[in-house]
Simulated assay, not measured.
Amino acid sequence: MNTLSALIADDERLMREQLRMALGRVWPELDIVAEAQDGKQAEELARQHQPDLIFLDITMPAQSGIEAAIALNGQYPIVFVTAYDQYAVQAFEEGAIDYLLKPVEDARLLRTRQRWEQKQPPLPQDWQSTLLKLSRQLDKPEYLRWIRASVGNSLRLISIDEVLLFQSDEKYTLVQTANCEALIRTPLKELLPQLDPEQFWQVHRATLVRVAAIEEVRRGERGLLLKLRAYGPLVEVSRSYAHLFQRM
């Protein structure tokens, strides 16, 4: 089988490495000729290396993947990679361009390879207008779907749906799941705007909890306490946030 060339574009180094490793397992004939950290660099490297395929993250600084795709004007087949399925599923499910959700899974990547090997479909006629519509959607607030956190001496990608609570101290924020404790350096004040307010509530100056994980609200001597599913310790609710539970 002839060797194919590919470009990977993602502003997260860990995501580029994860995708490169997955491609090595699923598509070893694919030669990664370059990696880009933003849309502008992706555009420049694509023109320089002329890859057969581009794996392009949608949300990147300086220039988004959508803007890069518009600039490249259909010259290269593109597989979009995104943490937000609303960007990809509706727009590309019936089109020529495939998409992958982060973190990329081998089984899904294999489908991309099989689709490529079967036949490369032509670009739809409304390709540019679809990209422009998607570009406007980037201005809407989007929320985290996964957390990159330290577990011991290794890094792990944790789905936001696994998180029971976030709890901060002076240097780190604890990410608590049913199966492990992990650490991130992002303080709560920076983390909170990135989380869906319908899924996560701040219940204390140093604590955020996932609403769906709350099993029981108890009254203690000093105020309300929360019992979370699959988590032993009770979580204290400060008086400033007690109003959140008036209807529970």
Rank of each mutant, 00 (worst) to 15 (best):
E216G: 06
Y241V: 08
R136K: 14
S150L: 11
S150F: 14
M1A: 15
W201F: 15
A242W: 03
I58F: 10
L157S: 11
V33I: 15
K119T: 11
W27I: 01
A9N: 07
G232T: 13
V33S: 06
E12P: 00
L7Q: 12
L7F: 09
L14R: 08
N2Q: 15
D38M: 11
A88W: 00
E43T: 13
F80C: 00
M21F: 13
R239G: 10
S129Y: 01
F92P: 03
G39D: 02
I97W: 07
A182M: 09
R145Y: 00
S64C: 07
D169S: 05
I160H: 04
A91R: 06
L23Q: 07
T186Y: 02
A9W: 04
R218W: 10
R239M: 07
T3G: 12
S240F: 07
D10V: 14
P122M: 09
E94F: 09
R145S: 12
Y172A: 11
L110D: 12
M1V: 14
Y84G: 08
E216Y: 08
R16A: 07
F80M: 04
L23W: 05
E44P: 04
R185W: 05
D169K: 03
I158F: 00
H204M: 01
L208A: 00
D196N: 05
L7C: 03
V209C: 02
M248C: 12
Q246R: 13
L225Q: 10
L174P: 00
E221H: 13
L30H: 03
W146P: 01
L72P: 02
L208N: 00
Q120V: 15
I97M: 07
E181L: 13
Q194W: 00
V33H: 06
Y172F: 14
E44K: 08
E43L: 13
L131D: 06
V163Q: 05
Q167T: 06
L244N: 00
I78C: 08
S64L: 08
A213R: 09
A71C: 12
T130E: 11
A71N: 12
G95W: 02
V163E: 04
T112K: 05
L224Q: 09
R20K: 12
E162C: 03
F80D: 02
T207R: 02
Q114N: 09
L19N: 01
D196L: 03
L192V: 09
L131T: 01
H49I: 01
R47H: 12
I158C: 01
D85C: 05
E181V: 04
Q86N: 06
R113S: 01
L138C: 08
L123C: 01
L7Y: 07
R185M: 06
W146H: 15
T3L: 15
V209L: 12
A42E: 03
A91H: 06
W116R: 05
R145T: 15
Q41P: 06
D10Y: 12
K140S: 14
P124D: 04
T112V: 15
W27F: 05
L164H: 08
L174D: 15
R219C: 09
R210K: 13
K140C: 05
Q90H: 10
L224Y: 01
W27A: 06
L155E: 11
L157P: 02
E117I: 08
D11E: 02
L188N: 07
Q125Y: 05
V209N: 03
Q176H: 00
